[in-house]
Amino acid sequence: MRTRLTELLKIQYPIVQGGMQWVGRAELASAVSNAGGLGVLTALTQPTPEALGEEIDRCRRMTSRPFGVNLTVLPTSNPPRYDEYLDVILGRDVPVLETAGSELGAVIARAKAHGTTVIHKCTSVRHALSAQRQGVDAVSIDGFEAAGHPGEDDIGAFVLIRAAARKLDVPILASGGVADGAGMAAALVLGADGVNMGTRFCATREAPLHPNIKQALLAASERDTTLIFRTLRNTGRVLRNTVSEAVVALERRPQGAAFPELQPLVAGARGRAALESGAVDDGLVWASQSIGLIDDVPTCAELIERMVSECRSAILKCADVMNREVQQ
């Protein structure tokens, strides 16, 4: 499959594994890359820039194919050493940098000056156009179905992908709600050059998650996610569980909830512990509405090959319908 994205990233299939906190490690990233997609390490999963360097080296020992690193920059009172994380990424000559967050002009400029390919995650066309002006090579456009932070506009991928394709010149990755080849075919028809998947790759054998978490994703339907942080205008989509329901309940109070009240429930360390222990109700589990389309735990290679086959079949089926109509 050749698209602008496969040419840009030098990969076999236009499938990218999104950067995911606690999940984007060498085991998963290398498996996706070895299967023909682009695996992505998550920089801030590692406790220090030095640890990220070791993880990049470990990933290189596990794959000879291209992979990327996600660096998410968010305004916080005690920010990580973002510049040092970027130093490590560029110093290790990682070919692809996936950026997310705000105030990334300096990060993008440094990466581009180094010759690194930059993919920026956006939740709106206006933000994607801004990223394009800053010189990114591609944009990952996140629909409202997506896990993580899908923005505040509440625009589903079906409209958002098409709107982005009509206005952007750089390649587009469709993100949010894609879990199979039919979804990839739809994204390509809408004008995307590939797909970005997070939740679907969580339910693979190589994903560094407890089996109980993977089984919870399989058991859930498309109705089993919920939105947190709505009142803080930092909307996040997560699996519906005891913790996320408690967060929503606090936010729905007449007086709402300040972040310090929510912090004990949503702390990253608590979420990581739940993912590793398999205690599904003990912390946040980030998940997209694509959980309604997940019903097995294949290897990354099995998943990607199946998706490509399904995608081709879906496109050929549409072509056959059109040909039969013309013949009539």
Rank of each mutant, 00 (worst) to 15 (best):
T63H: 11
L52Q: 14
L86I: 00
C59H: 12
E84K: 07
E54G: 01
T72F: 09
V73C: 12
D83C: 02
T76Y: 00
E54N: 09
L74W: 11
I56F: 08
D83L: 05
S64R: 14
I56C: 08
R60C: 02
E84H: 02
L52K: 11
E54W: 06
S77R: 11
F67V: 01
N78Y: 02
P79I: 02
A51I: 01
D83R: 08
N78H: 12
F67S: 06
D83S: 09
E54D: 14
E54M: 08
A51V: 05
S64L: 08
D57M: 03
N70H: 04
P80I: 10
Y85D: 12
C59I: 10
Y82S: 04
N70A: 05
A51S: 04
P80Y: 09
S64F: 02
E84P: 00
P80V: 13
T72E: 10
L71P: 02
P80W: 06
N78Q: 15
E84Q: 15
E84D: 15
Y85W: 12
N70M: 03
P80A: 14
S64K: 13
I56Y: 11
P75N: 10
V69M: 12
L86R: 07
L74I: 14
P66N: 11
I56P: 09
V73S: 05
R60E: 11
P75S: 08
L71R: 05
D83A: 15
N70K: 03
I56M: 12
R58E: 15
E55F: 03
M62V: 08
L74A: 10
Y82F: 13
Y82N: 05
P75L: 07
L86C: 06
A51N: 01
Y82W: 09
S77F: 00
S77E: 15
T72C: 03
R61F: 00
Y85S: 10
M62C: 06
V69F: 05
N78A: 10
T63V: 12
N78D: 13
I56N: 11
T76C: 01
R81F: 07
V69A: 07
E55Y: 05
M62Q: 15
M62E: 15
G68L: 14
L71H: 06
D57R: 14
P75A: 06
G53M: 10
D83M: 07
P80N: 08
D83F: 03
C59P: 03
L71F: 10
G68E: 13
D57C: 01
P75R: 07
G68I: 14
E55C: 00
P75G: 08
A51C: 00
T63F: 05
R65A: 09
L71D: 08
C59Q: 11
P79T: 08
C59G: 09
N70D: 13
M62I: 04
P66S: 08
A51P: 00
N78C: 06
E55W: 13
S64N: 12
D83E: 13
R58Y: 07
E84V: 09
M62D: 14
S77Q: 08
T72D: 05
D57L: 10
E84N: 05
L74H: 09
T76F: 00
R65D: 07
C59N: 12
D83Q: 13
R81H: 06
S64H: 08
E84M: 09
D57V: 02
L86Y: 10
D57K: 13
R81Q: 15
L71V: 04
E54K: 11
D83I: 01
T76Q: 05
E84L: 08
V73T: 12
N78I: 04
T76S: 09
E54A: 08
